[in-house]
């Protein structure tokens, strides 16, 4: 069973201006999916639809269905869905509402009515998971941006969700913070089998981890599939080309010029390895 399924889903905050338009999509359990698209494409709204905030929080009007681990979101409640889907919003600082690190994680668990001893245990466990052990008593205000981001993640992970949704989690982080956050998400994905759905502008940073790209434009699903397929599609159809990472622009250009096909270039190292192998072959041929 897919973790997330959208069936002909449309949504408008203010009827009848559709922000999502007839989207049919399925995201496999245990996948690491990235939503791409220019601003105003409906990326945030798609995240909110998976979390149930659309339509439960925003009202508006909708058509079609969204299923999350088989639950029909429209017929469930946000509180019920919060047990399955953990959501990190774009403005993550405002998601932190308590005074200290451990209280922030405990807050999620207290909302569920978990017993105090169990809370202490789980707080310890989840802070370890995100690398914030030792910061328990620290004031939330004194954390760095990256640490705040990790704390929000911890507070969301505390309730053991099966799906994590993150809306542009790295927009306020430096490159190092971005890299370590994605490393952490990838670990959660691979080791704990959590399905990850993330909105990201910088495609290069997610290439090493993602296994599905979802391309939106003007509220419509343009294309979805493996990163490689989606990037090739974007280049071929000239859609949202400014987002194609330079490395892939190079790859696609070489492929077009030489009619040679490369495997995916997830990192610069992979690109270098493949290119040098090709160059060696060429050199051998010419020799």
């Amino acid at each position: 069973m897919p973790a997330i399924t959208l069936q002909n889903f449309s949504y408008a905050y203010n009827h009848p201006k559709k922000v999502l338009d007839n989207i049919t999509l399925s995201i496999e359990t245990g996948s690491f999916s990235v939503i791409l698209g220019p601003s105003g494409a409906g990326k945030t709204t798609l995240c909110l639809a998976v979390a149930g905030a659309v339509p439960h929080y925003f009202g508006g009007s909708s058509a079609g269905k969204v299923y999350v681990t088989g639950i029909h979101t429209k017929e469930s409640s946000m509180q019920q869905l919060s047990l399955t889907v953990g959501t990190v919003l774009q403005d993550y600082e405002t998601q932190l509402v308590t005074m200290t690190v451990e209280e922030e994680v405990a807050f999620s668990l207290e909302n569920m009515g978990i017993a105090p001893q169990e809370i202490t245990h789980r707080v310890e466990e989840v802070l370890d998971k995100v690398g914030l052990t030792g910061y328990e008593k620290q004031a939330v205000t004194d954390l760095s941006g990256g640490q705040k981001q990790r704390l929000v993640l911890a507070s969301v992970l505390a309730t053991n969700p099966k799906i994590l949704v993150l809306d542009e989690p790295t927009s306020a982080l430096d490159p190092e913070g971005t890299h370590s956050l994605y490393k952490l998400l990838s670990d959660l994905n691979k080791e704990h089998g959590i399905t990850i759905l993330v909105v990201e502008h910088d495609i290069a940073t997610v290439l090493p981890y993602a296994d599905q790209f979802i391309l939106l434009e003007n509220g419509q699903l343009i294309f979805n599939g493996t990163p490689e397929k989606v990037l090739s599609y974007m280049a071929a159809k000239q859609i949202f080309t400014e987002a194609i990472p330079p490395l892939w622009q190079l790859k696609l250009m070489i492929e077009e010029l030489t009619a040679r096909q490369f495997a995916s270039w997830h990192t610069e190292e992979e690109a270098i390895a493949q290119l040098s192998k090709v160059l060696e072959e060429e050199a051998d041929k010419n020799a």
Partner: peptide
Amino acid sequence: ESELTIHDKNK
């Protein structure tokens, strides 16, 4: 595609 249904605005 089915018609959009309007949800409770005060939610």
